[in-house]
């Protein structure tokens, strides 16, 4: 039976609990189970040079960008997907061709590419990554990411892609 006149204590505790759950993102794990597609980030596509070659490493290396590529919904790992990476590094600007390179995911949907150390540019130490549908035959939507490093001294960056089927 529902009480039409909840006490002040009930109202406060219910609203408080709702706010707490909403604000702390406690609902997130439940949603992650269904593998929501990763949205493109603002500024992610800035200084993109489409079609950079697949390389063993960009420049002289020293910094690792790695992550996984999965399918939205069931989270199945996607193999052979082309991920392009670029950043302002110790060896070049974002706009320089030598700052760009691409790699393919393995059977487990993992990618890992070595590149020069990312250094802060335009106010934040950040990288750029893209899964570009135009350079892939697999029928997923393009996603541009612009992850920011926690510290400028970090020597690696971990990035997750969950792609939405077209």
């Amino acid at each position: 039976m529902t009480n039409p006149y909840p006490s002040r204590r009930t109202v406060f505790s219910t609203v408080g609990a709702a706010l707490l759950v909403g604000a702390t993102g406690l609902r997130l794990p439940a949603r992650a189970q269904s593998f929501e597609p990763t949205p493109s980030m603002r500024g992610g596509s800035n200084n993109y040079r489409p079609g950079a070659p697949i390389v063993d490493r960009i420049g002289n290396g020293g910094f690792w960008t790695s992550g996984t590529v999965r399918r939205a919904g069931d989270g199945a790992p996607l193999a052979g997907r082309r991920i392009q990476v670029w950043a302002h590094t110790t060896e070049g600007n974002e706009r320089d061709a030598r700052s760009h390179g691409a790699t393919l995911t393995n059977e487990a949907g993992e990618f890992r590419i070595e590149m020069p150390q990312i250094v802060p540019a335009f106010g934040q130490p950040h990288g750029h990554l893209v899964y570009d549908a135009d350079y892939d035959d697999g029928g997923f939507e393009t996603v541009f990411l612009r992850p920011v490093m926690e510290r400028a001294s970090d020597t690696s960056l971990q990035v997750e892609f969950v792609l939405r089927p077209v």
Partner: peptide, 16 residues
């Protein structure tokens, strides 16, 4: 140095 970043900033759509 980076035209698209500045365009984003001027249009109030920069991530920074």
């Amino acid at each position: 140095t980076s035209p698209p970043d500045v365009v984003d900033v001027l249009l109030f759509r920069s991530p920074t």
